[in-house]
Structure formats: C-alpha cells, structure tokens
Design a protein around this nucleic acid. Structure first.
Length: 287
DNA sequence: ACCTTTATTCCGAACGTACC
DNA sequence: GGTACGTTCGGAATAAAGGT
C-alpha cells in the first residue's frame, strides 16, 4: 500500500491523501480526533466493498451506517445529498507500477445508498494525473464537484474498470492486487483481518481458533505451483547425479594423467639418452 | 434527438444477532 | 446448537434522466 485517500467523505470535504511509508501508516492524534474512523473507512471497506455497519466498526456495533459518514449524524441535518470517494493506491516494490482501487458512494437522505467500485490499471494516479472531481464555478468561486459514476467511467475509459456491485469490486481487487486462486480464499483473508483487529481478540479467541483461522486463510497451492516445485526438485536430483558422475570421471582422468605423465617423462628421458649417445658417437667418429 | 444509463421499487436470499 | 427475527444485499423490471 502506497497511499490512501478520502474525498468528500465524513469531515474530509476536500481530497485528503495519506502517504504510507514502506507500506505502513501511523496515525497519531488525541481521543476523538478521528483516527479510527479514518482507518475503518479504508480497511477493510476498500478490500471487498462491504459497507455494513458491523464491518465498519472494529467493535462490531451497528451504531453508524456508512451513509452517516457522508450525510452526518441522524439528528444533524446539514445536507441531503453527498457523493464521496475512498481509494487505496498500491505500488509494486522497487518499480514505478501503480494500481489504485476505490469506491464511490452517493448517499441521499431517506434513500438508499448508491455504490460503485473502480480500479485504475494504466498507472494513472489520483491527485497527479487523475482526479475524482471536476471544477464548477459557483458564484465566482471554484468548487470541486465529485464525479458521478458515469463521469468516472468515462474518465477511466480503457485504463481500468468500474463496477456497481460490491461482489464485482471484491473480485477486481483480488484479481489485480491479491491474486488468490479462488475468491473463497480471499474472503478468508479479509475475515482474518477483521478478526485480528477485533479489540476483544484475547478474550474471545483461543489459540487453537487463531490457528484455524490462520490456516484457513492460506491460499491453497495449485497444481501449477506444485509442478514448478517438483520440476525443480527433479532437476536438482539430476544435477546432483551429473556432479557425482563428473567427479568419478575426474578422478579416473587424474589417474590416467599421472600415469601418462610418468610415461611421457620416461619417453623424454629415453629420447634424451639416445640423443646424447648418438651425439657422443658423432663426436667420437669425427675424432 | 436518440439511445443508453441511472434511479426506483420490490422481493427473495443471505447474513448476523439475540434468545432459548 | 437451534430457531426466530431483523437488516442488508443483489437482481429484475420499469420509469426517468443524462450524455454523446
């Protein structure tokens, strides 16, 4: 995770972008300053698009619906319609590859919530070369108007996807970010994240239960993965056998070389002796 | 101006919770 | 552990709105 952002959501009336450092984000502030709300609006909502109240709140209460974060609390009527965006940008380590996933939400008072999810896959980045709003001049003032779903779709074009169903959004995130073979494994991961963030963790979960959750959240190995592994092991076996064979051949060759050296030395000495003898005979004959 | 998209409504399914 | 209940979600159908 590289950046997370909120636009026109809750108390964020403008674009607010949080930069992660090395995949980590530290939020610091006094009680009630909004650390939890900011966090719970990003995770796990942006992983699977589910916005039900018990998913938002780490304590599992159903006090606030996602609409309340857009429109304000029930008794405070300050607006009747609001469109907001949440997004999360991922960066591939040591590259300049970016993928952004996000959701748009339109809330209207006494009406149901409209949801759409999107993903940017063509390396465009929100706040740099992609924007979730357009400018409108209102009484001489420049105002940021959040894009409607249709407008967002047109701006994304071929550089990504826009979906209207939460399930489709979840599938997109899994496909482009996590890559679990089946969606059930991805669901397990999110379930794990939610259970691990529960403040009642130590009270409600025995270690054996934690073990089961962790085990269930692991993606099962595919035949493809296993084939790579067995191929590698097989070739390792083959290479080892080749090395042993080569070593046997080398000791054999060394033996031959040793004998051949001796033989060559003998031949050399012999030839040298013959040469000397012949030379001596030549000298004697000349005398 | 046309055609596509969006909004609305309804209903069944699924999920989570409370209670026994 | 089972049941009842309430809430939310998703799909279908249709009317209305909006973009090209």
């Amino acid at each position: 995770m590289n950046r997370a952002g909120l636009f026109n959501f809750w108390y964020y009336n403008d674009e607010e972008i949080f930069h992660f450092s090395d995949g980590k984000l530290l939020l610091r502030g006094s009680n009630g300053s909004g650390k939890s709300v900011t966090m719970q609006s990003i995770l796990p909502v942006l992983l699977d698009g589910k916005t039900s109240p018990d998913r938002l709140d780490p304590f599992g209460s159903k006090a606030r619906k996602i609409e309340d974060y857009l429109l304000g609390e029930k008794d405070i009527v300050d607006r009747d319609e609001r469109t907001g965006y949440l997004f999360l940008e991922y960066k591939r380590e040591n590259t300049n590859q970016y993928i952004t996933t996000g959701i748009g939400l339109q809330a209207r008072r006494y009406k149901s919530l409209n949801f759409w999810g999107f993903i940017l896959t063509d390396n465009r980045r929100i706040g740099k070369d992609f924007f979730l709003y357009e400018y409108e001049y209102h009484a001489g003032e420049k105002q940021k108007i959040p894009l409607s779903r249709r407008q967002l779709e047109n701006r994304i074009g071929d550089g990504g996807h826009v979906v209207t169903k939460r399930g489709d959004y979840r599938n997109l995130v899994n496909k482009y970010i996590f890559g679990f073979e089946n969606i059930e494994a991805y669901d397990e991961l999110i379930k794990l994240l939610i259970q691990l963030r529960s403040p009642k963790l130590s009270k409600d979960f025995k270690p054996t239960v934690i073990y089961e959750i962790l085990e269930a959240s692991l993606p099962p190995l595919t035949d493809e993965d296993l084939r790579h592994l067995s191929d590698t092991i097989e070739s390792m076996d083959q290479t080892k056998q080749q090395i042993e064979q080569l070593e046997r051949e080398r000791t054999a060759l060394e033996k031959i070389v040793k004998r051949y050296d001796l033989y060559n030395q003998y031949r050399l000495a012999n030839t040298a002796e013959q040469y000397l003898n012949t030379k001596r005979k030549v000298t004697e004959t000349e005398k």
